[in-house]
Nucleic acid binder design. Structure first.
Length: 312
DNA sequence: ACCCAGGGTCGTC
DNA sequence: GACGACCCTGGG
């Protein structure tokens, strides 16, 4: 039984009502996205040309927002995407961005049957969704992630956007910038890139941006490739290894079989399943073997569960 | 104050 | 395949 949910657009806001799997904290605080801030439980997110604020609404709040709407008669979980636009924006962008056509409730049920660890992870992370983010943004963000920590990655991405991205709008005294194009980043000097906090990754970023600026179709082509071919194409870019390529495909294209293996996944896969496997390729193969065609999503639930509970 | 680890990749052996 | 170096920075 698919969960019944309603999407309503009104006054530049989009409401997602009755969706069991939409928890802003679990969507954004798990390392798949870097262009967000949180304040009083509300998430400000920059995606494409949009700057939205995501809030959970109680039944009372929802009724205040949509006073004359029949849906507010029966209390259901509700989320509002403020400033997200009209129904057209939802259909053209948000539906895809939030991976709304995947049935996460069904996925959780399937994962829960696989084993007790995944069952706990899935219960803990209920409300997670994969984001289908801009591929170029994912490439640069995850080149930055190598041997780095999340606060610094976020800072660098923010400074890079301010340095080379188009200003979008000012809200509450803060100017928000769109993520830069490959062309704009390729035009920066390595010195400028280092000043954003990129460190030694500055040269990878510049080189990769240059390659992609010279071949603007490359990323779009990967979307129609098999997982294997797309992964191979991405690994050819400077600063992009096997793990980063998997992150790009998982968080930029919702390629659910991509299974990134980082230090945390090595730890948790060994602790829960493998014992003492050091070979990353074999850990990745074991993940796909255990969790199936959507192993990357299982990986995200496990990753989030392990990190939030400091399982080392 | 100093040290360490952080969603890995690359070059070298 | 297995090491070690690697820009920085926030947190201990």
């Amino acid at each position: 039984m698919a969960n019944k949910r309603a999407i309503i657009a009104r006054n530049d806001h989009i409401y997602i009502i009755g969706e069991t799997d939409f928890e802003p904290k679990h969507i954004f605080e798990n390392g798949q996205a870097f262009r967000w801030t949180v304040s009083d439980g509300a998430y400000t997110v920059v995606a494409d040309k949009y700057v939205i604020r995501i809030k959970k609404l109680s039944a009372t709040e929802l009724a205040l927002h949509l006073p004359d709407h029949p849906i507010t008669q029966s209390p259901k979980p509700a989320v509002v995407l403020e400033h997200a636009g009209s129904m057209e924006d939802y259909e053209n962008f948000w539906r895809n961005y939030f991976d709304m056509d995947r049935d996460y409730a069904a996925l959780r049920r399937d994962f829960s049957k696989i084993d007790r660890h995944l069952k706990k992870a899935v219960a803990f992370g209920k409300g997670f969704r994969l984001l289908r983010q801009d591929l170029f943004e994912m490439i640069i963000s995850f080149i930055l992630s190598a041997n780095n920590n999340i606060p610094r990655i976020k800072n660098t991405v923010a400074r890079l956007s301010e340095l080379a991205g188009e200003p979008l709008l000012e809200r509450d005294g803060i100017v928000h910038y769109r993520f830069p194009t490959a062309k704009r980043i390729a035009a920066l000097s390595e010195e400028q890139l280092r000043k954003t906090g990129a460190g030694y990754r500055a040269s990878y970023i510049r080189q990769t941006a240059e390659i992609l600026a010279d071949d603007p179709e490359l990323l779009d082509r990967t979307r129609s490739m098999s997982y294997h071919d797309a992964h191979h194409a991405l690994v050819g870019l400077p600063g992009v290894g096997a793990k980063v390529a998997d992150c790009i495909l998982l968080f930029g294209n919702s390629t659910a079989c991509a299974f990134p293996v980082d230090t945390w996944v090595i730890k948790l896969m060994n602790r829960f399943y493998l014992g003492d496997e050091k070979n990353v390729k074999r850990i990745k193969a074991a993940g796909v073997e255990l969790f199936g065609a959507q192993a990357g999503i299982a990986q995200q639930y496990l990753f989030y569960y392990a990190r939030e509970n400091s399982i080392k």
